[in-house]
Design a binder for these strands. Structure first.
Lengths: 147, 147
DNA sequence: ATAATGACGACCAGTTTAGTCGAGAATTCC
DNA sequence: GGAATTCTCGACTAAACTGGTCGTCATTAT
């Protein structure tokens, strides 16, 4: 069905959450799960993946939690999603970059283009960009409620 | 995994096959399946879907088979794939066109763009275009073998 | 009638998705 | 040292989707 799974969605939201609330010290899984409406034990797996790929750093024990391993500006959506979802290629034959235009796969040329554009766009958006948008959204929501 | 399923791939190839070999009278399922390397009984389902959505016309009995219901130039990849795969939207919140920018879904703005571009590109490619490419490919392959 | 061909629905195995759960390891605080 | 807190990791599971297969029936040309 060509859908992004919840892994990608949840994982990105977790990173945005860390960008927004991780200013002073680590943020606990419980907090992220509550704010972002993600089942906590599922979030566990996603954070593990993000840790493995160097997006978050975690510390155990009281006062422990998770924080971004690098500045949010230096994390692009593309790499994050590829960590969580695996390859985003719409066709298996587009997996490996080497311009293997054997054309074994007939529709390749159409999708190659689409795939390249998609990757470029996802690469140009950082977690910081998303966090900024999110903050705006929260601000607007607060305004609407207060009126 | 964000992958196009074999339904889309097989179905499009079946239409290309009809565009190439359907000049004089209907083409049998068996023929398509053999040429395109698709399990025949699976192809059955795909042709049924394509018939329901008006891409092919079928006739039963001896000498029967399948043919394109309209000129290949007037069938774009987008509509064909949407018939076979369902919506191609990478996020559920992009399903319905009405620019419902409630922004319930935070990453929506990024994907909206990508989705629109993708659809535009898929709409600009017709089955005729793909058939032409395919014919070229077959010609080249024949040359290579004969050398 | 019979043979050819498509139409349609039931069924099925394997994979992926979206989780849950429980035991354990590290760390802090007392 | 012991208890509380927090992350870590692997096993397990239910539901949905993918990629089919099969059998029966309908239609049509001869």
């Amino acid at each position: 069905m060509m859908r992004l799974s919840t892994k990608g969605d949840y994982g990105v939201r977790a990173l945005i959450d860390l960008a927004l609330y991780g200013g002073d010290g680590p943020v606990q899984r419980t907090e992220i799960a509550r704010r972002e409406q993600i089942p906590e034990s599922y979030l566990d797996h996603l954070l593990a993946q993000l840790r493995r790929d160097g997006f978050v750093r975690s510390t155990r024990g009281p006062g422990g939690g998770h924080e971004l391993a690098r500045p949010a500006k230096e994390m692009c959506l593309l790499h994050v999603l590829e960590s969580l979802e695996g390859s985003l290629a719409p066709l298996a034959c587009l997996e490996d970059d080497p311009e293997s235009d054997d054309g074994i796969c007939g529709q390749q040329w159409v999708w190659r283009d689409i795939y390249d554009d998609m990757r470029a766009k996802l690469e140009s958006v950082s977690i910081a960009d998303l966090a900024e948008r999110e903050q705006e959204r929260l601000r607007n929501r607060a305004l609407n409620y207060s009126i």
